[in-house]
Design a protein around this nucleic acid. Structure first.
Lengths: 139, 139
DNA sequence: CTGAATCCTTAACGATACTG
DNA sequence: CAGTATCGTTAAGGATTCAG
């Protein structure tokens, strides 16, 4: 649908490319439950975690969203899915090597967030708050 | 201001909190143009970059989205905005110290993306393609 | 030049109900 | 137990227009 444009400049670096890997990665880890799922699976690693268990360890997630999230992760090769042929069926999930390496990245994101998001919050409060900080040309 | 709640379970880790800093950070850098804006500003640092220059260095972005993106970044204290009182006005942007530290995180994300997104793509192709890879316990 | 305001389309997300 | 299907809401994002 969108791939047969005439020329698609692509300009300077591939970072501006619509197929920029960074952009696409951010699209994935930016979805609401992906990072949490990866974290929970990483904490359990190398053990597997069952669907219902993930549901329990991810407060707020619905079955649908967990299902959608896991399917994406499996499709991306970040999570492995193993079905135990019993009744009722038991499905186990675990991070692949690739998924584990991604967890490392998410850990960096987490560290920054825990270290600096309070600062971000403060900046926001000053902006919307009663204050009129000197030097702010709010106009 | 947010500290006088009754108990706020906070359960295991604050990572499951709806106000989880990681989740909120991902919401921000997950927006389409934020990471690119930060990257461009980081490349130019410590120099400032004007609005029109950013527009040029971020192919595909519209004036509206650049404006929205920059406003968010400024609100979050990640970017500083300086207005030169001339006609027509010239507005300069630069990363704050906080913004520069975030760029470090984004660099990690970028590195992983460039190193591993091809693998993710391959996993997706195998999934939707004609192949039935040996050893994949898809069941 | 720099931005804000408006309209529209798309997709993520949540709630719910149903199936093997 | 582990999903899928459907529906409705919401918000991100793009195109365009107007203004200081």
């Amino acid at each position: 649908m969108t791939s047969q444009a005439k020329d698609v400049p692509a300009a300077r670096g591939d970072l501006f490319d619509p197929a920029c890997p960074t952009r696409r990665l951010l699209d994935r880890i930016g979805t609401k439950w992906t990072s949490m799922a990866v974290k929970v699976l990483a904490e359990a690693a190398p053990d597997e975690v069952r669907f219902a268990e993930l549901l329990r360890r991810m407060p707020g997630v619905s079955q649908k969203m967990l299902s959608v999230t896991l399917r994406s992760l499996v499709r991306d090769g970040l999570v492995a899915r193993r079905v135990e042929p019993s009744v009722p069926p038991a499905v186990h999930y675990r991070l692949t090597t690739l998924g584990l390496s991604l967890e490392t990245v998410l850990a960096v994101v987490r560290d920054w967030a825990e270290a600096h998001m309070a600062e971000v919050d403060r900046a926001n409060e000053l902006d919307g708050g009663p204050q009129d900080p000197p030097g702010s040309a709010t106009v």
